[in-house]
């Protein structure tokens, strides 16, 4: 009986306070949003406005390419979009790397980029390399020393990086050893 009451309470609490599953919403919660702030007379209005993503038309996906071959076995998990594209990204490809960072130059987390673990790690290190080489100096916090020439000591000279140093250990591919 006590278990039933506890279960009932937890169900009621979940129904009221749950934030992850919102079955009833007055606004459409799942849309790309932009926060705008404007002044109306003496009051400041802050609102979140749904905007279309500026990247949707320019998006490149491996399945949309003409000579795309899908994964051999359908039972396996499909690769993430960067693995499927198979691009050889260098740390000097700032036009690609700048898509993974916020406007202050921070790497976006994996739940937003949607990469696999390995690619997220690789992209994060490539972004760090590009920042250290001073190639993305317009994507920095305000108090940052933007121009590499204004940095101190060894940091003020040009530096390039070798992408082979990102994964020094050879990571084996995930294989199901017990599969028949």
């Amino acid at each position: 009986m006590a278990g039933l009451v506890r279960a009932g309470f937890s169900f009621a609490r979940n129904a009221i306070f749950s934030t992850s599953v919102r079955s009833i919403a007055t606004t459409n919660p799942l849309n790309l949003k932009e926060i705008r702030e404007r002044t109306e007379g003496s009051s400041i209005v802050i609102e979140a406005v749904n905007v279309p993503s500026p990247r949707t038309e320019l998006l490149v996906r491996a399945e949309n390419l003409p000579n795309h071959e899908p994964a051999v076995s359908p039972s396996e998990k499909p690769p993430c979009y960067m693995c499927a594209l198979g691009l050889d990204v260098k740390h000097t490809d700032v036009l690609i790397l700048s898509q993974f960072v916020r406007s202050d130059g921070c790497m976006l987390p994996r739940r937003i980029t949607g990469l696999c673990r390995r690619q997220q790690k690789k992209m994060g290190k490539l972004v760090t390399m590009a920042q250290k080489a001073g190639l993305m100096i317009n994507l920095t916090p305000g108090n940052c020393k933007k121009d590499p020439k204004k940095r101190r000591e060894h940091k003020k000279f040009n530096t390039y990086f070798d992408e082979r140093t990102i994964f020094m250990k050879k990571i084996p591919k995930p294989v199901d050893r017990f599969k028949r």
């Binding site: 905007v51 690609i96 898509q99 949607g114």
Partner: peptide, 13 residues
């Protein structure tokens, strides 16, 4: 420039 990553739908710009 062609884009690789698109924002998820509930991302705040």
């Amino acid at each position: 420039y062609p884009k690789v990553m698109d924002y998820p739908e509930d991302y705040i710009l």
